[in-house]
Design a protein around this nucleic acid. Structure first.
Lengths: 127, 127
DNA sequence: CGCGATCGTTTACGTGCGTAATCGTTGAAG
DNA sequence: CTTCAACGATTACGCACGTAAACGATCGCG
């Protein structure tokens, strides 16, 4: 009876980020990282872990007296839905208008452009 | 004393979208569009308009007995902050990783690729 | 064997949001 | 003038979220 994928909030995604970087991890470790990076108190992190558990976004495997947490949903899937959502909302679902937007806004430095070019070449080669 | 730019919520952005498409507009017109597109009731739209007013995202100019609404913040600025936020959160603020993500996910059709290539050429020409 | 530290669970609370009903004002029609 | 309809303003309400404190179980140490 796994609940269908629910939405992961911004704060929750910070927890996911930690787990995606390296898992499984004990609550203590997660807490340590988030206390440093986000300045969150222990209770905050505990709550977020529980909400993620309820959403079936992570799993907790008993390891002796504590639990080890690991992500159930992949980072790729999360990133995918988030970015697709933005593209749909703002750019009619198309990537090019987004790039165009950034270039108009001069948010593209030469390095970015070079990397994009490399990417396009690679895509060409692949097909 | 214009309050610093506040965050525009998803529902509110639907109202903005209507105004960005064509403004100024009377509440009645906005309502008609959103009732059709989003299925919103009158009260809902009124509330959103007021919240946007409080956020200084739109202005209301008296036109006889009614008001005509117009956006105060530009669509470009909104799009900019939204997309920058996503890039920061998910792609370390860089555009290339996002494009890479989409290509890996096979979300790029040849048409997209062609358009991206055109864009890059144009950017090259411009500098 | 009891006690305290350590985890996880439960409860809490203010805020913003989505959605809407109700209130109050005011111009227009009779 | 009086009353009605139209419009904006105010109030409402449940839910998710960010943030956290309080509670409860449990394991290891003395």
């Amino acid at each position: 009876m796994d609940t269908p994928p629910q939405r992961i909030s911004a704060a929750e995604s910070e927890v996911m980020k930690v787990l995606w970087a390296d898992s499984p991890k004990a609550a203590e470790d997660i807490l340590a990282i988030l206390a440093k990076d986000q300045g969150w108190a222990e209770g905050t992190v505990k709550t977020l872990l529980n909400r993620l558990l309820k959403k079936n976004a992570i799993a907790a495997d008993k390891d002796g007296r504590r639990f080890l947490y690991r992500p159930l949903i992949g980072r790729e899937d999360y990133v995918d839905s988030e970015s697709q959502g933005l593209l749909d909302r703002l750019f009619d679902g198309r990537l090019a208008p987004l790039v165009s937007h950034f270039s108009k806004r001069e948010k593209l430095n030469p390095e970015d452009v070079a990397e994009l070019r490399r990417l396009l070449e690679k895509i060409d080669d692949d097909q």
